[in-house]
Amino acid sequence: MSTAPEPIRITRGRGGQVEVEGTVDSLAWQLLSRAGFLSGPTINGRWIRLPFDMGEDWENERAAWAAQMLATARFPVQLGPGLSPRASGTTQPAIPSQSLPPRTLMR
C-alpha cells in the first residue's frame, strides 16, 4: 500500500514572508519560479520564498497562482490561511494576468 506524497505547503511564516515547505522537484520549482518565488541555500538545504516587502495583496496573488499551477500539474498542495486573494464581488481567487509569448508553428 503506497502513501500519499507529502504536500507542498505555501504558508506565511512568522516573519511575514511567504515560504514553501515540502518536497519540490524540478517541475514544481519551475512553476514556483514562474509565480515569482526565489530560492537560496541554507545550512540544511534550500529556502523557497517570495521576495520581501511586495505587499500582502501581491504576495497573496502569487501564492494562490503558484498553488493553482501546482494543483493543475497534480501536485498535492496546501495554501495557508489568509493567502487566497479574492477579487471584489467574486468567490474565485484573483489570479494575476500574465502575457505569454506567442506560440510559433513549426513548418
Rank of each mutant, 00 (worst) to 15 (best):
residue 103 R to P: 02
residue 51 P to E: 09
residue 50 L to E: 01
residue 98 Q to L: 11
residue 41 P to I: 01
residue 101 P to V: 03
residue 102 P to E: 09
residue 8 I to T: 09
residue 2 S to M: 14
residue 29 W to Y: 15
residue 24 V to E: 01
residue 2 S to N: 11
residue 23 T to C: 02
residue 99 S to D: 08
residue 81 P to N: 12
residue 91 T to Q: 12
residue 27 L to N: 15
residue 51 P to G: 08
residue 86 R to G: 05
residue 94 A to V: 03
residue 73 A to W: 04
residue 36 G to D: 02
residue 103 R to F: 07
residue 5 P to F: 12
residue 91 T to L: 10
residue 19 E to M: 09
residue 10 I to H: 12
residue 11 T to Y: 14
residue 101 P to E: 10
residue 7 P to W: 03
residue 58 W to E: 12
residue 4 A to S: 09
residue 4 A to T: 09
residue 51 P to S: 08
residue 80 G to D: 14
residue 47 W to Q: 02
residue 9 R to Y: 09
residue 93 P to Q: 03
residue 49 R to W: 03
residue 63 A to M: 04
residue 32 L to A: 01
residue 50 L to M: 06
residue 94 A to R: 03
residue 91 T to V: 12
residue 13 G to V: 05
residue 41 P to V: 05
residue 82 G to H: 03
residue 18 V to K: 00
residue 71 A to R: 13
residue 59 E to A: 15
residue 76 P to L: 12
residue 70 L to C: 00
residue 4 A to E: 15
residue 60 N to T: 08
residue 45 G to A: 02
residue 90 T to Y: 13
residue 38 L to E: 14
residue 28 A to F: 07
residue 39 S to F: 02
residue 44 N to S: 12
residue 11 T to A: 12
residue 87 A to D: 12
residue 9 R to C: 14
residue 52 F to Y: 08
residue 69 M to G: 00
residue 23 T to F: 07
residue 75 F to C: 08
residue 60 N to R: 14
residue 56 E to H: 08
